[in-house]
Structures are given as C-alpha cells and as structure tokens.
C-alpha cells in the first residue's frame, strides 16, 4: 500500500502563494484533485512528483521525502500537463526510451505492454509530431505506466481527449485504482472527477477547501444558494410572486432599460433571484409564470462558474 502524504505544505513563487498550508493524504484508489484554474493543483502535483520543492512543509512517499530523491521515480509514474515531448522520435521509440531510462530488464516488452494498455500500438511507428492531442496524451500515459508504478500522478489527463478516448482513459484509471494503485489526477471539471474518483480533494486559491467522498461534496455544491438572472414580460409582478416562495431568499429588480412587454405590460432590465433550494425553485418558477400569465424570456444561472462554487465551499 503506497501513500503520498502532504503535511502543512506551502509553496510560493516570489510574492504569489500558489499553495497555502495544505495537508492531505493520497492513498490507494483513484483520487480526483479538483479545483478551478490557478487553484494550485499543478503546483501540488509537481511537488508530489518531486519536480518542485515545497517552500515549507513536507511531501513524502511512504514516509520517504520526495524532493531531491531520484529513487522515488521507481514507484511514481508522472503524466505532466504540458504537451511537449521529444517530437523527433516515434511513439514506440519514445516509450522504449522511457523504459530504458528506468533500466527495466526487458524494456521492449514493457514498452509494448504500456502502448497496448493505452491502445496506441496502431500508431506507435508514427512520429510524435504527427499525433493529435489525444494521442499525445495516451503516449504520455504509456511513458508513466511503462515501469508499472504503484503511484500514478496525472496533471489534467483528459485535456484534449475526444469522448471515446476520455471514456477509455477513465476505464483505465478505474482499473488502476481497483488494482490497489494510488492514482491521483487533477481536473477542473466536476463531472470528470465524480465519474471515476472514489475520493476528492478540492483546492481553491491555493487552499485545501474540501476532501472526502464525492457525493458529499456534490451535495454541498448542489445545495448552496443559487443565483439566477430572469427576464420576462412583467418582471415586477413576477418579482412579487417569486418573493412569496419559501425556496427564495431574495429578489432584486434591475431597473436597466425599461421596455414594454406584451399586452402593454411593463418589463425591466431583469430580476436577480437568490434561491435557497435550487430544486424547489426550478419546479415552482414555470408554475408561477403560468399562473400570472407571464412570459419568461430568459432564465440563466448567474453564478455557475467553478470559482464561485468553490468559493462557496471554502466559506462554509
């Protein structure tokens, strides 16, 4: 059983704090490192991969310091986010070179097995420069798997993959997790993470915002107050009707540009609604509109960015 431990780790670049006092343990199974862009996910993975020194705290693999310890790469497979590889060689030559760099006893068999695992044998003799983004991603996976490591660290592995490749990689990661490997991958897409991760670590603005089972985090995310922007042909009437609903905590009428709606009724620049119960509100809104004879022109969530979702999680 291989465990990566991060103890009170901070990392800063000049005045920018990329990771701030993070403590987490990554054990066997698939862990999703979730967070918006710039949350510190890559920095954390770089530290776990021994490519970056923590400014404070410690990052260890089964109690062994990772930084400046080349031996840990016998147990770690790393898939970097950056796409650059040795474009002058073929996929086969590149994976074989990685097997040789690991000084494996039978590098050819290891390279063949890794390429089969990622289903790249058909294109293995083509130059890497001719590969699509998804193919490059799979060759990167093969280089990380070539020495059969117990720990796999993947930085945004689904970037650039088409849906079929994405599903295939998801299956692969699930298999790796079932085999008892410690698999950590970063993503800024919740759906990706919840489909394969048994455990989620959420990073926001360099801080460790939440961790645990994805269902619990999903529930927190779904049950937070949701904000909507609504435009109708009679915003004032709709506002008063919405305000009477228990699922709503506030309505603001945006004066905006006044317009005359159908039947001579008066619209406005729209409504900003804060709903406490997201599910109840989306059920009741069309009924209210029908009851009052109001035509809805636009109903759009106003705060669905990952940043706002994660910021809400942090504030809890």
């Amino acid at each position: 059983m291989t465990t990566v431990s991060i103890e009170q780790v901070s990392c800063w670049f000049g005045n920018v704090v990329a990771v701030n006092d993070v403590t987490m343990t990554i054990g066997p199974g698939v862990t999703g490192l979730l967070g918006p862009n710039g949350a510190g996910k890559s920095t954390l993975i770089h530290m776990m991969g021994g490519l970056l020194a923590p400014s404070s705290g410690s990052v260890t693999l089964d109690g062994e310091t990772i930084w400046r310890n080349e031996d840990v790469y016998r147990r770690i497979g790393l898939v970097p986010e950056r796409e650059a590889m040795y474009d002058i060689v073929t996929g086969w030559q590149f994976v074989l070179a990685n097997a040789r760099l690991h000084r494996l006893p039978d590098p050819e068999s290891a390279a063949r097995r890794a390429l089969e695992t990622v289903e790249m044998t058909g294109a293995q003799d083509r130059g890497i420069a001719t590969y699509s983004k998804g193919m490059k991603q799979r060759v990167k996976m093969a280089t990380a798997l070539v020495h059969d490591p117990p720990v796999l660290l993947l930085d945004e592995p689904f970037n650039g993959m088409d849906p079929r490749q994405r599903l295939q990689l998801m299956d692969l990661l699930r298999d790796m997790g079932r085999q008892g490997r410690t698999v950590l991958f970063s993503s800024h897409i919740l759906e990706e993470v919840e489909q394969i991760a048994t455990d989620i670590q959420v990073m926001v603005a360099g801080r460790h915002a939440a961790s645990g089972d994805f269902r619990e985090i999903r529930r927190l995310m779904t049950e937070r107050p949701h904000q909507y922007t609504i435009r109708s042909d009679d915003d004032r009437t709709l506002a008063s009707a919405i305000m009477a609903e228990a699922s709503v905590s506030g309505v603001q009428l945006d004066p905006g540009q006044r317009s005359t709606g159908h039947g001579g009724r008066s619209g406005s620049g729209g409504l900003h609604v804060q709903a406490l119960d997201f599910a109840a509100f989306v059920r009741v809104l069309p009924r209210l509109a029908r009851r009052h004879g109001i035509r809805l022109y636009e109903v759009s969530p106003a705060d669905e960015s990952l940043e706002s979702v994660f910021t809400y999680l942090v504030s809890r």
Binding site: E70, P80, R103
Partner: peptide, 15 residues
C-alpha cells in the same frame, strides 16, 4: 524551455 526534460528527470537517474 518546453518542459520535455521532465521525462528524463522523472527517472531514477543521477542528475
């Protein structure tokens, strides 16, 4: 510059 050296550095090789 392009980061590809990571494939050499992430190996048990003496720098």
């Amino acid at each position: 510059d392009d980061g590809s050296i990571v494939y050499v550095l992430a190996k048990p090789l003496d720098r």
